[in-house]
Design a protein around this nucleic acid. Sequence first.
RNA 1: GCCCCCAUCGUCUAGUGGCCCAGGACGUCGGGUUCUCAGUCCGAAAACCGGGGUUCGACUCCCCGUGGGGGUACCA
Length: 520
Amino acid sequence: MVRTRFAPSPTGYLHIGGVRTALFNWLFARRHGGQFLLRIDDTDAQRNVEAALAPILHGFRWLGMDWDEGPEVGGPFAPYYQSQRLTGYQAAVEKLLAGGFAYRDYATPDEIQAEREAAQAEKRAFLYSRRWMAETPASQAAFEAQGRQAVVRLKMPREGKLVIDDLVRGKVEFEWAREQDHVVQRTDGTCLYHLASVVDDFDFQITHVIRAEEHLSNTPRQVFIAQSLGYPLPAYAHLPYVAEPGSKNKLSKRKLDKYLKNRDFALVNEHGVAIASALGIETSGDTFNPVIVDFYEQVGYLPDAIINYLLLLGWSLDDKTEFMTRAQMIENFSLERVTKAPASFDPKKLWAFEDHYMQALPIKQKVAKMLTYLQRAGIVPAPPPCDVGPKLTRIVEAAGDRLKVFGDIIAYADFFFRDEIAYDEKAFEKNLRKPEAVGLLAKFRERLAAVEPFDGVHLETALQSFVAEQGIKTGDIIHAIRVATTGKAVGPGLYDCLEILGKQKSLERIDQALVKAQSK
RNA sequence: GCCCCCAUCGUCUAGUGGCCCAGGACGUCGGGUUCUCAGUCCGAAAACCGGGGUUCGACUCCCCGUGGGGGUACCA
């Protein structure tokens, strides 16, 4: 039976790098028909854990990574919150102490620091002298009489070595004598992460600890704790971290300013921020950006695109497979094929996956989802009038693969639904300021009024014959019509635009543009 | 300082001693198609960190550098 876990801290957001780690855990568990659980590392958390956890759980659900045990779903080993498991940690500390695997230490932080600095000055590895170690009640009392307070430290072995057979990295060796007597319990009685983590992994019967490589160096002390407590060891797999765009530095949420200097990152960010602004979402600070999963949900990316991209960030099936369904991912995932080197996050490639998945999405689903975006942006009223559906379907069809995320519909649909039109002034200047252009547009307006039925085929015929008669090229008139009727320089095919707009509205807009063109 | 991990095109990667004067994808550049944009089609440029070994033969194995990352906390 395989059991894996992901242990988020309730921070209020789900980090893209964390999702990658969670994904590999989830995939591995599903691959082997095991369980994936969520444990909440909230030992040093402040007041509102639930509020800070909600966006994280929401993100997992949105991405389709279900957990078999953990918050909200419970499970046989509940509770899954570390803050509620303190007595278990305390018991473990007692056991360590009783077994001689740990000791009460009365050194002050300054005294430890002094020893550490002395070792460094001599260029040798620091090893605590254990001068303030109390092993008997008598020495305890003596130290306490001096007003000293105790922490509990691990009494690490000082000879031999540890060999870990890491599922990603292979054999990794550590000399025990290089390992510190780490603190497992503070003077105030609270326990530290490593102890808690090991106890929980045992209690939850975790078989495979799959986590970021920053924990590789921490593994010896965890192994020591586990062995001292008589626990069986889980298998370990240390994943490379996710690096910054275009660099090998670890991706962190704190360096947003730096990432925004990366062209691709900035582009993806701006695109998302524009959509979010139209939706009235707060986009300031470091709560809304491409490092955070919520960004993608709000802007309207597809979970499958995110997952597929993340899957390939540090893992590959072979030399060519890029796109995989969930079932294929589960069927093929293996830790042996995880890369050892860090992989940098490339927003442009994520964008390419999004593009692919969006184009593959059935039109009905696109329309349904995009309608909610138009409503949220206030372009379409909340219970939509019944004619909106067919019209929106036409728009989505006409826009085609220009729509990369659901939120893109806002920019493509607003001129079809809104009465007033916002002109791209630059395009207007270019195409509608010259007298010839205005003259042609005025002439074509009359031609347009006679087109019947007002559909793509007839519109094209009308325009082509007009062009032939006038002895001009299509390009000489079509841009003027586009700007006049849609306000923009780019967009879906013009015949589609006119047809969707309808004759009346098309003529009105041309008239309006002619007035504006001649005003100035 | 000490310990550990890592190193193929700009990026994600394939490669487990000869199939590699290194393959795929994203991106980039050039061209075709087109009313714009998007797309699509065709084409191009683009990498084995450096130095020593081992071997008939190294991207692949070993050693030494160099570079990057992590740990060394009464953080997680």
